[in-house]
Amino acid sequence: GATAVSEWTEYKTADGKTLYYNNRTLESTWEKPQELK
Rank of each mutant, 00 (worst) to 15 (best):
E31L: 08
T29E: 02
G1Q: 14
P33S: 01
N23H: 13
T18D: 02
T3E: 11
K17W: 05
S6D: 10
Q34D: 15
E7N: 06
P33N: 01
E31R: 05
T25I: 02
A14K: 11
A4D: 12
R24W: 10
L19F: 15
G16Q: 03
W30N: 08
A2V: 12
W8F: 01
T9R: 09
Y11G: 03
T18N: 03
R24I: 15
A14M: 09
T13D: 08
N23V: 12
K17R: 15
E35Y: 06
T13A: 07
A14S: 11
K32Y: 04
Y21R: 08
W8H: 00
N22K: 01
T18H: 03
Y20D: 01
T18R: 03
L19T: 04
S28E: 09
R24T: 09
K37Y: 14
T9E: 09
L36F: 11
E31T: 09
E35A: 13
W8I: 01
L36R: 04
Y11I: 15
A14D: 08
Q34V: 13
A4H: 14
K12D: 03
E7G: 05
G16K: 02
T18I: 15
P33F: 02
L26H: 15
G1W: 12
E31A: 06
T18Q: 03
K37S: 14
S28P: 03
T25H: 01
A2K: 10
Y21T: 06
N22M: 00
K32F: 04
G16L: 01
D15G: 08
T9A: 06
T9G: 04
E27V: 09
E10S: 09
E27H: 04
R24Y: 11
N22P: 01
N23P: 05
N22R: 01
A4S: 13
Y11K: 07
S6M: 09
T3N: 12
E27I: 07
V5D: 11
W30S: 10
D15R: 03
T13L: 11
E35K: 04
K37R: 14
S28G: 04
T13S: 08
E31M: 06
R24D: 04
Y11L: 12
E31S: 06
K17E: 06
S28V: 15
K17G: 04
N23G: 05
L26V: 02
Y21K: 04
Q34Y: 11
A2T: 13
T18L: 08
L26G: 15
E35T: 07
R24E: 06
Y11M: 10
S28N: 04
T3H: 12
T29F: 09
A14G: 07
G16H: 03
Y20E: 00
V5K: 10
E7R: 03
Y20T: 00
T9S: 10
P33L: 02
K32V: 10
N22F: 01
T29M: 05
S6I: 08
Y21M: 08
G16N: 03
Y21Q: 04
Y21I: 15
E7S: 05
K37I: 14
W30V: 06
Q34P: 15
G16Y: 01
T25Q: 01
L36D: 06
K32L: 09
K32I: 11
E27T: 06
E27A: 05
N22A: 01
Y11F: 14
G16A: 02
K12H: 10
G16E: 01
A4R: 08
D15N: 10
N23L: 09
T9I: 14
W30H: 11
Y20N: 00
A4G: 13
K17N: 06
K12Q: 09
Q34H: 11
R24A: 09
A2Q: 12
S6T: 10
G1E: 11
Y21D: 02
W8T: 00
Y21F: 15
T18F: 06
W30L: 09
E27Y: 04
N22T: 01
N23I: 11
V5I: 15
W30Y: 15
L26T: 08
T9H: 07
A14H: 10
N23K: 11
P33D: 01
T29Q: 10
W8P: 01
T9D: 03
G1S: 13
K37L: 15
K17A: 05
G1I: 14
K12F: 08
W8Y: 03
T3A: 14
T29V: 10
P33K: 02
G1V: 12
A14E: 10
T18K: 04
T25Y: 03
E31H: 07
E27M: 07
D15W: 05
S28I: 15
K32E: 07
E35D: 11
R24H: 10
N23D: 04
Y20W: 15
A2L: 13
G1F: 15
L26E: 11
W30C: 11
D15H: 05
A4M: 14
E31N: 07
Q34N: 14
T25F: 02
G1H: 14
E10D: 02
S28L: 15
T3G: 13
K32G: 02
K12S: 06
L36G: 05
T9W: 06
L19P: 00
S6E: 09
P33A: 02
V5C: 15
K32H: 04
L36S: 06
T18W: 05
K17Q: 09
W8D: 00
K12W: 07
E10P: 04
K32T: 09
K37V: 14
E27W: 02
E35W: 05
T25M: 01
E35I: 07
R24F: 12
G16T: 00
V5S: 13
G1R: 09
W8E: 00
L36T: 06
N23T: 14
W8S: 00
T29Y: 07
A4F: 12
P33Q: 02
W8L: 00
Y20L: 00
T25S: 03
V5F: 14
E35P: 05
W8N: 00
L26D: 09
P33R: 00
W30R: 05
N22Y: 02
W8K: 00
N22G: 01
K17P: 01
K17F: 05
T13K: 03
E31I: 13
T25E: 02
N23S: 11
G16P: 01
L19Q: 04
E27F: 04
T29G: 03
E7W: 07
Y20G: 00
L36Y: 12
L36P: 05
N22D: 02
W8M: 00
D15Y: 05
W8Q: 00
K37N: 13
W8R: 00
S28A: 10
D15P: 01
L36E: 06
N23R: 11
V5W: 14
Q34F: 12
Y20Q: 00
E7A: 07
T3I: 12
R24V: 15
T29I: 05
E7M: 05
E10I: 15
L26S: 11
E10G: 03
R24Q: 09
E7D: 12
T13E: 03
T9F: 09
A14N: 08
K32P: 08
L19E: 04
Q34K: 10
S6Y: 08
S6N: 11
P33G: 02
T13Y: 11
L19D: 01
Q34I: 13
Y11P: 00
T3F: 12
T13M: 15
T9Q: 09
E7T: 05
S6A: 12
Y11H: 07
K12R: 13
E27R: 04
A4T: 14
T25L: 03
R24K: 13
E10T: 10
W30T: 10
T9Y: 09
Y11A: 03
A2Y: 12
A14W: 07
T25K: 01
K37Q: 14
T13V: 04
V5Y: 15
S6H: 10
E31D: 11
W30I: 05
V5E: 11
K12G: 03
L36Q: 06
T3Y: 07
E35Q: 08
K37E: 13
